[in-house]
Write a protein that binds this DNA or RNA. Structure first.
Length: 1057
RNA sequence: GGGCCUGUAGCUUAGCAUGGUGGAGCACUCGGCUGAUAACCGAGAGGUCCCCGGUUCGAAUCCGGGCUGGCCCA
């Protein structure tokens, strides 16, 4: 039995009910069970980081995942959908440090690594709980009860196996490199862990004195004075032109080496009063020019180094990365920059790095030993100024890297770290990218591809605590062992089965050295947290422990994440998987956008421009949020959040709800039984408009499906939305209202019910992956065949119900109706007052066919007595013909003369022109030459007749005759009365099916006697459910009201029977 | 500085591969409808199609250069 729905759309009332219903009835579990023999599909939930509450972007991400999983489930797929969480790493460490008021590693060590790590674990697990609840609230169906967690032992073992595998393939190495380094966290940072924003730094020009030449200087520019103590050489570009210029300030002469194009600028910066070019060089000519290290006295290391055989020390060298900026000469400290490091390698200079983990100068830093590097900037500048070698100093605002977690400006340090040799696998990775389907295409073909092309080796070691420990044990003899399986630890000391594999406990486990028999201890590093999620496609399957699962599922069928994952998870998975299996671990990728604020700015709590999913749900419900996120724009574009957008989604769902409410009201009243009154049973009772709606429905279904397959999520949902609003609500429901009002069993009414029923049910099926709550709600009432709509099969498109003909004709009818309503408005005759005649002057045969099919329907909609059709080619008397040029037709033939021809056309006699054109000799004189015009070049129109009102429609022009006769007037009054009586019924709060007694008292100012209205009495009675009806004074118990309609005064009295 | 993407009405967008007077929805104003009714329908107003050049009779669309915003990198 279909229940009558008389509540308004209140998602916050029924959405939690539906979620409770799913829980109580194990809807999710049963749906999965139903599909367990279906084709296997491996989906991976890119694990969100357990940092606390979810934001709008995370919500969008999960909703997209849920959409497709629900959609594919409705096609019978057996989908592996384990939720996942990324739980290690610096972000959590930093949060815990802040909570404990720590400021550096010493604080952690004092507190005890075990206590610290325990707190990190607790933080991660409690965040997971909060996040899971929030995801569930979004109606997202994933396997929440058994998520994969990167902190579990099986996961760690999987990581170790992967490292071992890399080691066996000789793809892991220990190397000394210059890396970005956070002086607060005291660890190396990956490129992915650095955030850039503007910072104001010193900007200084320094004169390096050329050796053995009085007053000759090489001028360099830098923003990091503190790197000057580590300066070993200066670089020029081999192909640039350089000059030696003579400059004079206050009568003193100096000679400066700078790039030719920048000479003037440098002279200006140095406030020199005169300058003159003495000599020109190619960059390459300057190689080997020797200078005096400007801080030689303060940093004794340099004098010591000069004693060694370092040929290129304190000389000019060549480098391609030098740009024509500032001076065109770059001071180079191989220990403090990746480029500098390369130059150092090329010129056999050591990566001298007098800076410790905390960013302080070591004793090699000489004068500044023990002091934080950056704090020495001003002192170094003062010193240079005192020595007279500071040419200019000022400030510059430029983009500078910061630690992604603690926001400390990064520094560059030379350290020894472990690397995965991703560069050796680059070709394979590129190949694999092209084997994968990317949506949109450029996300893979260009963006991901180019990123991998420029990849460097992956530094995987971190000098921290909360992470997967590096599985490498080292012996004093130099021997190293990489542990790939836990079994290998059983031979060692202090290992117990099922022990926590994290630091510090794992650090106590020692192994016997296979070479010297000594004791091997674990190197203290942990793995880069990006490595954790990189391996999740096999780690969550507990590979290598459980190989069958891997065989069954791997590789993954589909992933979707935001575009920042090009450098993140898309990349890390690819790298790790190619190293482990020579294969990309996913087959399809949908790259989605970011949720931004309405100004396209990143949402952030600190800027106060963030909108939380929670506050949106509170206002408009989950389905509205889901609808909005999925319909607003293409998934791969950034989404500027707009409250109006959510409101709009809510509005559409509200309209769907109203259609549902309308339908169930009458279905329940008539106890409509969809089992009995099937489509087949009623096949011969459908009206043309019913068949039209079926056709539109099938069209919407097929479009929606097609677009979803192409990941055009927005287009898919827009097709459904369009059907609901345009076809169902704004048109079909309007057409069908009279039919639902009929009392008793009418096959015509039942046919209408069937159409509404099918439309609502199919829309629910279509919508259920997008907005599962309202879909479930409607489904439960209308069908309830399964516990949940999710167990239904995805709608199959019934092509035999499609009819382009019906659609084309209805389009013409709708266009005519709209035109007539428009004309009525111009004439100020509202729809309740009938029109004597409507004339449609058509330009094709569509109108004729449309009126044959839908003429009656149209008459009702526009309230007209007769419709007259003027067929194509014929004219309607009284209509003047007009002629207009068509530029699209004229352009190709007449080119720049087109406008001239257009003006000639405007001056033609339309009737003659039309005749000429039909005979094929419509000509004009253009520049004295006669040219022929074709029918593509002109368009004929019809001018307004005086008495009638006209409006254009899709297939011509419509005219309405507004003359009012007494009969028409009576019909108008009847409709006006019906409307008032209905309003009074509602005021009395009568049920739809209640009967009444009605009396009408007329003043007879306009109407001449009640006989005028007599022919309409039955009509009034029928439409107002008046069992009794009479003219005359009110009775005492009548609910009475006075009305004025079109100048006539009425008193209407009704009472319930 | 580089790579990828983006820019159309106050807001959100369609159109762009294949050039021919730019379509919607929301919001706004006016009007209509009235047993889906805190809904619905119609009309109006609102556009330098980011800017500058080029190709073309004709450019939102094609080409070149710039700018904006996003992500990523240096």
């Amino acid at each position: 039995m279909i229940e009558q729905v008389n509540t308004k759309y209140d998602p916050n009332l029924f959405e939690p009910e539906i979620q409770q219903y799913w829980k109580d009835n194990k809807a999710y579990e049963l749906t999965k069970e139903k599909n367990q023999d279906g084709p296997n599909f491996y989906f991976i939930d890119g694990p969100p980081y357990t940092s606390g509450a979810i934001h709008l972007g995370t919500a969008w991400n999960k909703i997209l995942k849920d959409l497709y999983i629900r959609y594919w489930r409705m096609q019978g797929y057996n989908i592996r959908d384990q939720a996942g969480y990324d739980m290690h790493g610096l972000p959590i460490e930093v949060k815990v440090e802040k909570a404990l008021n720590f400021s550096n590693k010493q604080d952690i060590e004092k507190h005890g690594i075990d206590n610290f790590v325990k707190t990190c674990r607790e933080f991660a697990l409690s965040s997971e709980k909060v996040m899971t609840e929030q995801f569930k609230q979004l109606g997202v169906w994933l396997d929440w009860d058994n998520p994969y967690r990167t902190l579990e032992n099986y996961y760690i073992e999987s990581a170790w196996w992967t490292i071992k595998r890399a080691h066996d393939r000789k793809l892991i190495t220990q190397a000394q490199r210059v890396l970005t380094w956070c002086p607060r966290c005291e660890t190396a940072l990956a490129e992915a862990e650095v955030e850039y924003w503007d910072e104001t730094d010193a900007s200084i020009y320094v004169k390096f004195k050329v050796k053995n030449r009085e007053d000759h200087f090489i001028v360099i520019w830098t923003t990091t004075p503190w790197t000057l103590p580590a300066d070993l050489c200066v670089a020029v570009h081999p192909d640039f032109s350089y000059v030696l210029m003579e400059v004079i300030k206050n009568g003193e002469k100096e000679y400066l080496y700078v790039a030719e194009d920048l000479a003037e600028e440098v002279a200006k910066e140095g406030r020199y009063q005169e300058m003159k070019i003495i000599e020109k060089f190619e960059g390459i000519d300057l190689e080997g020019l020797e200078y005096e290290q400007p801080l030689l006295d303060e940093v004794p290391w340099h004098s010591a180094a000069e004693q060694k055989e370092l040929y290129w020390l304190h000389k000019t060298v060549l480098a391609e990365y030098v740009t024509l900026e500032k001076t065109g000469i770059v001071h180079t400290a191989p220990g403090h920059g990746p480029d500098d490091f390369e130059t150092g390698v090329e010129y056999q200079l050591p990566p001298f790095c007098p800076v410790d983990e905390a960013g302080k100068f070591t004793k090699d830093g000489g004068k500044w030993a023990g002091r934080f590097t950056k704090n020495c900037d001003s002192e170094i500048m003062d010193l240079l100024a005192a020595k007279g070698t500071l040419l200019q100093s000022g400030d510059i605002t430029h983009r500078y890297g910061h630690c992604w977690r603690c926001k400390t400006p990064i520094t560059y340090r030379t350290t020894t770290q472990w690397f995965l040799k991703v560069t050796e696998m680059k070709e394979k990775m590129l190949e694999e990218i092209l084997k994968t389907d990317w949506y949109p295409d450029w996300a893979g073909r260009t963006r991901q591809y180019k990123w991998v092309e420029n990849t460097r080796d992956w530094c995987i070691s971190r000098q921290r605590y909360w992470g997967i420990p590096m599985p490498i044990w080292a012996c004093g003899c130099g021997e190293k062992q990489v542990v790939g399986y836990l079994d290998e630890l059983e031979k060692g000391k202090n290992y117990t089965k099922d022990m926590d594999l994290h630091r510090p406990w794992i650090d106590k486990v020692t192994l016997e050295c296979g070479k010297c028999g000594g004791e091997m201890t674990r190197i203290p590093d942990v793995l880069d947290v990006w490595f954790d999620s990189a391996i999740c496609s096999w780690a969550q399957l507990k590979y290598p422990q459980e190989k069958e699962e891997f065989e069954k599922w791997w590789p993954c069928g589909w992933i979707t994440e935001a575009h920042d994952q090009t450098r993140g998870w898309f990349y890390s998975q690819l790298g790790a998987s190619v190293i482990a299996f020579d294969k990309i671990p996913y087959e399809k990728v949908l790259m989605h956008g970011f949720a931004l604020d309405k100004e396209y700015r990143k949402m952030s709590k600190s800027d106060g421009n963030a909108t939380s999913p929670h506050e949106i749900i509170e206002k408009y419900g989950v389905d509205s949020l889901r609808f909005y996120l999925l319909v607003a724009n293409s998934p791969w574009e950034d989404l500027p959040f707009s409250w109006d957008g959510v409101k709009n989604g809510n509005r559409t769902l509200n309209i769907l709800w109203n259609i549902y409410r309308f339908s169930t009201t009458y279905m329940a009243l008539d106890e409509f039984d969809p089992e009995k009154w099937t489509y087949r049973e009623l096949e011969n009772d459908f009206r043309a408009e019913d068949r039209w709606l079926y056709s539109r429905l099938e069209k919407a279904k097929s479009t929606s499906k097609l677009e979803l397959e192409k990941f055009n999520v927005h287009k898919s949902l827009r097709a459904i939305e369009h059907f609901i609003l345009e076809d169902l609500s704004r048109w079909y429901v309007r057409l069908v209202r009279d039919r639902t009002w009929v009392e008793g069993e009418s096959r015509d009414k039942l046919a209408a019910f069937r159409v509404l029923y099918d439309a609502l049910l199919e829309i629910s099926l279509l919508l259920s992956p997008f907005t599962p709550h309202i879909a479930e709600k409607i489904y439960k009432n209308l069908s309830g065949k399964f516990i949940t709509i999710a167990m239904e099969n995805c709608v199959t498109v019934a092509d035999e119900r499609r009819s382009d003909e019906l659609e084309v004709r209805m389009k013409a009818i709708r266009s005519m109706v709209e035109a007539i309503l428009n004309a009525r408005q111009q004439a100020q005759v509202n729809v309740r007052w009938p029109l004597r005649k409507v004339v449609a002057v058509s330009s094709t045969t569509v109108s004729k066919k449309a009126l044959e099919t839908y003429g009656e329907l149209m008459k009702e909609q526009i309230n007209a007595i007769t419709i007259e059709l003027v067929e194509p080619g014929e004219t309607w008397e009284g209509v003047k013909l007009t002629i207009e040029p068509v530029m699209a037709g004229l352009g190709p033939t007449f080119k720049r003369e087109a406008v001239k021809v257009a003006n000639l056309i405007k001056e033609m006699n339309p009737t003659e022109a039309m005749n000429d054109l039909e005979k094929g000799h419509l000509n004009v004189m253009l520049n004295g030459v006669q040219v022929n015009l074709t029918k593509e070049m002109v368009q004929f129109g019809q001018a307004l007749p005086e008495e009638v009102i006209s409006a254009d429609y899709s297939d011509g022009v419509i005219y309405i005759d507004t003359v009012m006769t007494p009969e028409l007037q009576a019909m108008g009054f009847a409709r006006e009365l019906i409307r008032r009586i209905q309003e009074m019924r509602k005021e009395m709060d009568l049920a739809v099916e209640d009967y009444i007694s009605t009396r009408v008292l007329i003043k007879f100012d306009v109407i001449e006697g009640e006989n005028v209205l007599a022919p309409e009495v039955e009509n009034i009675k029928y439409n107002t459910r008046s069992k009794k009806f009479g003219f005359g004074p009110m009775e005492d118990d009548d609910f009475a009201k006075e009305w004025e309609i079109a100048g006539e005064k009425f008193t209407i009295g009704i009472k319930r029977l």
